[in-house]
Amino acid sequence: MFVALAAPNLALIVAFTYRPLILNVYYSTLDWTLGSDTARAVGFDNYVQFFSSSQAGDVFLTTALFTVATVVLSMGLGLLVALGLNRKVRGAGLAQATVFSPFVLSGVGVGLAWQYIFDPTVGALGAVLRGFGLDSPQWFNDETLSLVMVVLVYVWKNLGYAAVIYLAGLQSISSDVLEAAAIDGAGALRKFFKVVFPLLSPTTFFLMVTSLLNSLQAFDLIRAMTPLGRGTTTLIYDAYLRAFGGYNQAGYSAMLSTVLFVLLVVLTLVQLIVLERRVHYR
């Protein structure tokens, strides 16, 4: 009975998860032009070419900056918002829904809307700055500003996710624990850092794992706001550009995807093995 029930699901997982993964690893060893009927086996030449080039350092640096900035800001601001929402006041439910709503919006739609806002000529942000006698920054021409722009929008979109998860963690803390800390003379700050935040460690650990994986795989927002990837070429976006951005290097793109997969696995294992030891399950 168990085999009969599990077999269809296992077959789907093998067909649509493990088979594409294995094929991608195989494709990464080919010199294959996208659309060509033939491909030449080159072994690890694609990997050697990537890691021996200066491009690898730029891609990894951009990926690291984007990932660290979005994870830290999303979780940090999300915790602050959750603390503000964790109050029994009128309209709290509406405020929670408002904060969470950007997370469920289409990344492409959000990117296009914010692309208009950041436009130096016709954008809303430029109009506000000109009203104060200031020039709008060239968000799309400056590589550093392009990355900052994408990070800000990504954090805005995903802030609600972290806030709602943290809010659930805060509401699961027993009021008896907080009352005991108050009786012992703990102030607001000491109560937060000595009691609340340690009790939130399982929530923080969960958010760190999921946010890190999501940021490393962020694509739609980057594609919508910076189609050329100027200053925002992360590992996953470079894989897209290599295959569909005019290079038509399907084998090279598969190699980048394989590198990203290995990076995801390694970072996840590090978090599960090292960071989980600091989690205080109650």
Rank of each mutant, 00 (worst) to 15 (best):
V89D: 12
W139A: 09
K88E: 11
I165K: 10
T121R: 09
W114A: 11
G160V: 01
V72A: 13
T67R: 03
A180F: 01
W156H: 14
V164P: 05
Y166P: 10
N141E: 11
L112H: 09
L112N: 09
L159T: 08
R190Q: 01
I183V: 10
P102G: 01
W139F: 15
P137R: 15
G107S: 14
S106D: 09
S172Y: 06
A64P: 02
V81Y: 04
V71K: 07
G126N: 04
I165N: 02
F100Q: 10
S172G: 08
G78H: 04
G91H: 06
F193I: 01
W156C: 03
L105S: 11
V177S: 09
T144F: 02
A168G: 14
S106R: 08
F193K: 01
V110L: 07
T67S: 03
A162Q: 14
N86I: 05
L145K: 06
A97T: 12
L178T: 13
V108K: 13
E143I: 04
A97E: 07
Q96P: 07
P120F: 05
L83Y: 05
L112P: 00
Y166Q: 10
V153P: 08
L85F: 04
M149N: 03
A64M: 14
S175E: 13
E143W: 00
A69T: 13
V150F: 07
A188C: 01
W156V: 04
A162I: 14
T70M: 01
L125G: 04
V151F: 05
V72M: 04
G109R: 13
L73H: 08
G76H: 01
Q171V: 08
W156D: 02
L159S: 09
V89C: 03
L65T: 02
R130M: 06
L159R: 05
M149K: 12
G109C: 13
L77N: 03
P102Y: 02
F103P: 03
S172N: 15
Q138G: 11
L129Q: 11
I165Q: 03
V81C: 06
V68S: 03
A92F: 06
V108H: 03
L152C: 15
G111M: 04
G187S: 02
V104K: 12
L147V: 07
P102I: 02
P137V: 07
G131E: 06
V177C: 08
F100T: 06
G91S: 08
Y116V: 11
A182W: 00
L85Y: 02
F192D: 00
V71E: 02
G131A: 04
R130K: 12
L125F: 14
A113C: 15
G111Y: 03
K191V: 01
I173V: 13
I117G: 00
D176C: 08
G185F: 01
G131R: 11
F193W: 09
K88A: 13
W114E: 13
F132D: 10
L77T: 02
Q171D: 11
A92S: 06
V128G: 10
A163Q: 12
L83T: 07
A113Q: 13
A69M: 12
A180D: 05
T144E: 05
A182N: 05
T67P: 00
G91Y: 14
F193Q: 00
A97V: 15
G169L: 12
W156T: 07
F118I: 09
L178P: 14
A186R: 04
D176M: 11
L152S: 15
S74G: 09
L85W: 03
